[in-house]
Design a protein around this nucleic acid. Structure first.
Length: 510
DNA sequence: TCTGGGGTCCTTGGGCGT
DNA sequence: TCTGACGCCCAAGGACCC
């Protein structure tokens, strides 16, 4: 806790949905729902217009469609959100070197470290300026909370939503929090909330009155202590600019439960490879391999295995995941599979052996010091000959090429980690038109896919900053229609309106 | 009417070395 | 040699967050 409210929390309003509305003028003022469009998809973000129908994050998309049948349902375009996010984070870093991003749309800023504010008036001015700068740079609104601690700044920005700013004066914290529901506090979810409710505690004030000992007895030492301190408005966690990742994982929920053991093994291999890809691109290796299985009845189990040293070898991860799968009963069906790696390091066991070898040579050691097997191989050396690694996975393709191909292609077109399934993509002659994706027509210019089916794709021709555009329908294999990159929400020169040139694929913010 | 994906942190319990 | 206390690591699960 500090004496001046110089910790700022920024929370962009309905971020994914707002980005979609900004890039698609015909959606402004309309109910927009971004999330997984498959049978098991959930809502990632709903615009405020959609929230009026009762749609909210984490709700099954099928339920959202019943509540809001006329909404626009779009798959997330993470690459675009990432680019917008980087622009916003750039503005935050201009305020202070101490910026702690929490996600694409949220961050803490230490205003004191940036020497932009030392008191309430300065903090408020910086917050207002920031909101204006974000609007100018992206056309989007964000809410700002200001307080003397991270927890309170976050509470304040939540209260300020949408498009507002709230400052909690030091000294008023406890009174400010007292009437609020316990669910306001970070770390109090449905389970803890219900636990407390049964004990007759529903507000933060009641939480503070319950006392430290009682809370520790109810929810455990660490959580109880934390809750009590938060209820008093106490929080001295610093803003931390750099955070090391602790794990990397990938998982897939299947539209239909998997029963075939061969198919399940194939999926685990595929996930292992994807996971290693992510691991390598983050410059890490890891020592503990984790397999996650969610069964037909939604019960979830994890199995893990710790290797002798960190690895980023796909063969090693694949084998470990396969070993773990052998110990799992999948009769009844599997709805989700996941593979993860924890115990991250920025080197591999192989590096260490290479280092040792080099060292030995320098020191004039005569022995080749070659560990015969893979040093990072699992606990049981029975694993196998290296030759096995190179072979095809089990010889069984197992993938219905159509579905797998479609998903891959959608991911390719959409950017990383689309939620769930291809959604409303149409597959014909190898061309996919996911709902919401950007396209360009040789004659009509840039637009986006509004829908597709029975060999046709409907495109609305408009761009950020333009008036709502016209809709035209084409054959899915129309040679004049091609996928394109998203246009910047605001011209790169800050001039408003659409940029004339699409950003090169994969390029981040400036 | 069902419940995504990618994370973090905490708790519990067992094994093991000192 | 046996036993208990302790600390550490590992495995598994759960709650929570965005």
């Amino acid at each position: 806790m500090r004496a001046a409210p110089t910790i700022l929390h920024l929370d962009m309003d309905a971020f994914y949905a707002s980005v979609e509305q900004a890039s698609k003028p015909s959606l402004r003022g309309k109910a927009v729902i971004v999330g997984g469009l498959g049978p098991r998809g959930v809502v990632a973000t709903a615009s405020y217009e959609a929230r009026r129908f009762g749609v909210h994050s984490a709700m099954p998309t099928a339920q959202a469609r019943r509540l809001c049948p006329n909404g626009a349902y779009l798959t997330p375009r993470f690459r675009l959100y990432q680019a917008v996010s980087e622009r916003v984070m750039g503005l935050l870093r201009a305020l202070s070197p101490l910026v702690e991003p929490l996600s694409l749309d949220e961050a803490f800023v230490d205003l004191e470290a940036g020497e932009v504010a030392f008191d309430s008036a300065g903090a408020r001015a910086a917050g207002e300026r920031l909101r204006a700068d974000i609007m100018a740079a992206t056309g989007l609104s964000g809410s700002v909370g200001l307080a003397g601690s991270k927890m309170l700044a976050k509470v304040a920005s939540e209260e300020a939503k949408p498009a507002g700013l709230l400052l909690i004066e030091p000294g008023t914290e406890r009174a400010h929090l007292a009437p609020m529901t316990v669910r306001t506090l970070p770390g109090v979810g449905p389970v803890t909330g219900e636990h407390l409710r049964r004990a007759g505690i529903t507000t933060v004030g009641e939480l503070a009155e319950a006392g430290e000992d009682e809370l520790i007895r109810m929810v455990g030492r660490s959580h109880g202590l934390g809750l009590y301190r938060m209820a008093l408005g106490l929080d001295d966690r610093p803003v931390v600019a750099e955070r090391d990742a602790k794990s990397v994982s990938v998982e897939d929920t299947f539209d239909v439960d998997l029963h075939d053991r061969v198919r399940i093994r194939g999926e685990v291999q595929r996930l292992s490879d994807r996971c290693v890809g992510r691991l390598r691109s983050s410059g890490h290796s890891g020592r503990t391999i984790v397999l996650k299985v969610r069964r037909y009845d939604f019960s979830t189990l994890t199995r893990s295995e710790t290797l002798r040293g960190p690895t980023d070898d796909p063969g090693v991860v694949r084998e470990a995941a396969a070993r773990l799968l052998e110990g799992v009963d999948t009769t009844g069906g599997v709805r989700l599979l996941g593979v993860g790696v924890t115990g991250l390091a920025d080197y591999t066991q192989e590096d260490l052996f290479a280092q040792a070898e080099a060292q030995a040579e320098v020191e004039g050691g005569s022995e080749p010091a070659g560990p015969a097997g893979d040093p990072a191989e699992g606990p049981e050396p029975s694993g196998g000959d290296a030759a096995d690694d190179a072979g095809t996975p089990d010889g069984a393709p197992a993938e219905p090429a159509g579905a797998e191909g479609a998903e891959g292609a959608v991911r390719g077109a959409e950017g990383a980690g689309a939620v769930g399934t291809p959604g409303e993509a149409v597959i014909a002659l190898g061309r996919f038109w996911p709902a919401g994706s950007d396209v360009r027509h040789a004659v009509y210019g840039p637009g986006w896919v509004q829908g597709s089916g029975v060999g046709r794709v409907t495109v609305r021709f408009e761009r950020p900053g333009s008036p709502p555009g016209r809709v035209r329908t084409f054959k899915v294999d129309d040679p004049e229609l091609e996928p394109s990159d998203p246009l910047p929400l605001v011209g790169e020169d800050g001039g408003g309106g659409a940029g004339e040139r699409a950003r090169p694929r994969g390029a981040g913010a400036p």
